[in-house]
């Protein structure tokens, strides 16, 4: 086991509400019945995997980004800082310099270009990483503070933490933020395989197409899970066939799933077909990754 790198699976979708959390939490809990498994919630702006995982909290660590802090005494009010900052995170109002932490991208330009050294960089808490264990399952939640605009640095830090302290867990599942922009790219960059969760409707297909294009851009192998199978039509399946994307599983629409989910309950041990679906997903991924 020691020499084998872990299998890293990203769970993503073109938009929210397709069943990403449902799949991530159930897949992780089910796999952890037979082997050590890691679940990482990278949807840092709206993390809600925690609603489905009950365990013991092992640690909570503050996560920081670097921001400039104004040193009034050293400042000569030359105005270079506010002209340098492209994000308007540093502004000058007469004899006062204001720094807006949430708008800051930590580029260091204002700090290092200040001729008076009046904007030293300091740590600013932007969120926290919580580690919870439950049997064979290790769960890591990464949460951005409300008002913070930059999700990407926290996602990078979370990946680093996982590599450093949990590299020995053979199976790793990353619940990624929805959408197709920078946070998703940051979340999926170092995974081996990306599962795209969609639903069999025109909205689902449209969002899936965008997600597939994004993953192509960063050269990730992908597979599709169709959630709420049966509520729509077969266009998603047709698209996957034509685009040569494997459909890993179809999770049939079942009102009981919606009800259990709304109460924060896992479904793999209560809905008959669910375990078969989860088995199929993991087997298919292992096959693809092995081939590569």
């Amino acid at each position: 086991m020691i020499n084998n790198p872990p299998l890293k699976i990203g769970i993503a979708s073109g938009k929210g509400g397709t069943g990403k959390t449902l799949l991530s939490t159930n897949l992780a809990a089910y796999l952890s019945l037979t082997q050590p498994t890691l679940l990482v919630d990278l949807d840092v702006e709206e993390p809600d995997d925690f609603l489905f995982v009950r365990g013991t909290t092992q640690s909570i660590t503050d996560q920081y980004k670097m921001i400039p802090v104004w040193d009034e005494k050293a400042c000569t009010l030359c105005g270079i800082c506010s002209k340098t900052c492209k994000y308007h995170a540093v502004i000058q109002l007469g004899s006062i310099i204001l720094v807006f932490k949430e708008l800051c991208h930590s580029c260091y330009a204002c700090s290092e270009l200040c001729p008076a050294g009046a904007l030293p960089m300091q740590k600013h808490k932007m969120g926290e990483i919580k580690t919870i264990t439950s049997g064979n399952l290790t769960f890591i939640e990464s949460r951005l503070n409300i008002g913070e605009e930059q999700a990407v640095p926290l996602i990078h830090q979370t990946h680093e933490r996982v590599e450093k302290t949990h590299g020995d867990i053979p199976l790793q599942i990353f619940d990624c933020p929805p959408g197709t922009s920078c946070p998703v790219v940051a979340s999926t960059r170092n995974v081996d395989f990306v599962v795209l969760v969609t639903e069999p409707t025109p909205f689902g297909l449209n969002d899936l197409r965008l997600a597939v294009e994004t993953m192509k851009e960063i050269h990730k192998p992908v597979g599709v899970v169709i959630n709420r199978y049966g509520i729509g039509n077969s266009d998603v399946e047709m698209y996957c066939r034509e685009a040569g994307i494997p459909v890993l599983a179809k999770i049939r629409y079942d009102r009981r799933i919606a009800e259990l989910y709304s109460n924060g309950q896992l479904v793999y041990d209560k809905i008959e077909d669910m375990q078969t679906s989860l088995d199929n997903i993991i087997k298919a991924i292992q096959n693809v990754v092995r081939k590569n």
Partner: peptide, 9 residues
């Protein structure tokens, strides 16, 4: 371009 944040430094 994927990594550039446009800070201009």
């Amino acid at each position: 371009p994927l990594d550039c944040e446009g800070c201009g430094y």
